[in-house]
Amino acid sequence: MSIRFAFTLLLLFLANLVHADIQTKTITYQDGDVECHGYLAWDDAVEGKRPGVLVVHEWWGLNDYSRSRTEQLAELGYLAFAADIYGEGRTTEHPADAGKMAGEVRANVDQWRKRAQAALDVLKSQPQCDTSKLAAIGYCFGGATALQLAYSGADLDAVVTFHGALPAATLEEAKQIQAELLINHGADDTFVDADAVAKFKKVLDDAGVVYEFIAYPGAVHSFTVPSADTVGMPGIKYNKEADEKSWQAMRELFERKLGK
């Protein structure tokens, strides 16, 4: 065996040891009569309790992309749980089906928030979770879901959206927000127009909500999703710079609010 080959094997072995600390499992939970299948990830090398982060999927459902983001958060030392907002683990790769599933959820806001809260409760019930330090993040449809959770007055320290839909809260709902908000938005996103952005901001300003709104130049919808370019939908495209900057902005908020 050559020295170079042996060294390569050693590097692979060490890499596997590092990755092996990240543990994952599917958790089945109930929201009324609906069975949901969430995805939990944590670093087994971290001792004791750690902050919990709820992850909410795009309109495609809880797919590999959502799971990968959940694992990334675990690598940062958080306990991360990906919610199944559609229930029954439903996913799709077809925009028409995704729009239908997302529309069904949006049609009943109270049930939408209840489904998100059920997932947050699962996260809080995990023995590794420090329930005094909680956050929620969401992508596209998931961003709107995280906001709806905040509007309901959920006990969260931080909420982060990535190219999320921006449903405007009522003034009363905005006053219930406990979390600091970070909105990562594509400056050229044609799915969320300037009027929607203005209405969204005005209510938060009127209620005195602490938030940061970052619009990334040249970024459109789904700018954090590497596979976005393959979907074939106008207005959806990956942007590496915006992806990396928005993730770093999230990390800085979490370090400040969650202490990690």
Rank of each mutant, 00 (worst) to 15 (best):
D193H: 13
T170Y: 12
A119K: 03
V46R: 13
A196M: 15
L11V: 05
I214N: 15
N108E: 11
S125Q: 06
A74Q: 01
T170L: 11
E241G: 04
Y211H: 00
A20D: 07
G164A: 13
K25P: 01
Q30V: 00
Y211A: 00
A219K: 09
D84Q: 09
I137V: 07
Y211S: 04
L182M: 07
I3W: 03
I22P: 11
D193T: 08
Y139H: 13
F162G: 10
I27H: 11
Y65L: 14
E58S: 13
L204F: 07
F81C: 13
H19D: 12
T8H: 04
L9Q: 09
V109Y: 01
D193K: 14
V46Q: 13
V55T: 06
E58M: 13
L11E: 03
L120D: 06
G142K: 11
M101Y: 03
G164K: 12
V18I: 10
L76F: 11
L134Y: 00
A179P: 09
A74W: 08
D243P: 04
Q72M: 09
E255Y: 05
A179D: 08
D206W: 08
V197D: 15
P226N: 05
T190W: 13
K199W: 09
R113N: 04
T26W: 04
C129Q: 07
R69C: 01
S2R: 03
E47H: 12
L253V: 05
